[in-house]
Amino acid sequence: MPNETIQVTLKTFAQLRELRGVDSEELELPSQTSVAQLFERVFGEGPLAKLPVAFALNHALVPPTTLLSDGDTLALLPPVGGG
């Protein structure tokens, strides 16, 4: 199924959100896309390409190599600043 695509909801925060201009968006991606590849695809050419982000898939932290599935929600988390 090499030509299959998946629909993913992307949530962003802080400087990533300001760059996108929206807090959430729907993306169509090739299947077998990893969470790190999604970041690269969306932000890889821009000013935040080197930002060390963490990944939350369906609201749980996951490693960068985790593969996306159709219907997933991926959140990209810049370094946190609470307190």
Binding site: F13, A14, A56, L77, P78, P79, V80, G81, G82, G83
Partner: peptide, 27 residues
């Protein structure tokens, strides 16, 4: 609790300066 939350709580802070400049500041 405060040290763990500073490191891990998914909350982001933007510092807004009196000169109008602003930036997102990580812990």
């Amino acid at each position: 609790l405060i040290e763990a939350l500073k490191e891990r709580l998914p909350v982001w802070k933007k510092e807004i300066f009196t000169d109008g400049d602003a930036h997102w500041k990580a812990n």
